[in-house]
């Protein structure tokens, strides 16, 4: 409770700083204040288009993110278990990590329909984070404990449940949470460039074109709120069946 009150106070403090800054600038086109932004958000939220755009973006990001987590886990396990696969695939991982997201967006626009680009970009940005995070955890497993599970004849399921999963869980959780932030940022950046139908990125682009700064802020706040809500839900889900539970 004390923590929540403290968080609320910090939030109010930052809103106050924003309000003062907007008052000093005194030009809503450059820096709309919290009131203008709130009004813009309420106006937007009363339209069906707002919810449809937010929902579609959420679906795209979640699709790319979910596929990336799944593929990242599979690739990490494969590369940990098979040295040849690791030697073959690790340069691909390095290339994906090092390539600027805008290069990928433009390239993928040539390959896929504009509707599919944001999900694919989210997928590409999250994949190496999960893959690398989990593979590093697998590569540094406690060899003594693993030997113990073999000596005491743990079944595969028991070994997975009581040794592998708890060993890699902190790294997997960290990679999933970090990846979620990247999924949002890259997915919306892809929407701004690809301009698919019904998208937050498209609305951000429109706000920029028509110099509607308050709308730009309102959409950005929507993205932040959605991202934080998803991150909290993910953390809660991953914390379930926590490290130390009978």
């Amino acid at each position: 409770m004390k923590k929540q009150v403290s968080r609320l106070l910090v939030l109010l403090l930052w809103i106050g700083i924003w309000w003062i800054a907007a008052g000093i600038v005194h030009l809503p086109l450059l820096l709309p204040g919290p009131l203008e932004t709130g009004e813009a958000w309420i106006r937007l939220a009363q339209t069906g288009d707002f919810w449809r755009s937010a929902g579609t973006t959420l679906l795209r990001v979640a699709t790319g993110y979910g596929c990336a987590v799944l593929a990242g886990v599979l690739l990490a396990v494969l590369c940990h278990a098979v040295g040849a696969a690791n030697a073959f695939l690790s340069p691909l991982r390095s290339v994906i990590r090092a390539t600027p997201v805008s290069s990928f967006i433009i390239l993928v626009l040539l390959w896929l329909s504009r509707q599919a680009v944001p999900a694919f970009i989210s997928f590409l940005m999250v994949l190496p984070i999960v893959w690398m995070g989990l593979q590093e955890a697998l590569d540094s497993l406690d060899a003594g404990l693993l030997e113990m599970t073999k000596m005491y004849r743990f079944s595969r399921w028991k070994r997975l449940r009581y040794f592998y999963y708890p060993s890699v869980r902190p790294a997997l959780l960290a990679a999933c949470v970090t990846g979620l932030g990247f999924a949002w940022k890259s997915g919306i950046a892809a929407e701004v460039i690809a301009l698919p139908q019904f998208s937050i990125g498209g609305k951000l682009y429109d706000a920029k074109i028509y110099l509607e700064s308050a709308d730009l802020f309102a959409w950005t706040l929507t993205v932040i709120a959605l991202s934080m809500a998803l991150e909290a839900a993910l953390k809660r889900a991953l914390r379930k069946g926590g490290e130390k539970k009978k």
Binding site: G144, L145, E147, M148, M151, Y162, F163, P166
Partner: peptide, 8 residues
């Protein structure tokens, strides 16, 4: 019983 305890 290993030299180290090796408890999970």
């Amino acid at each position: 019983m290993f030299q180290e305890d090796r408890l999970l």
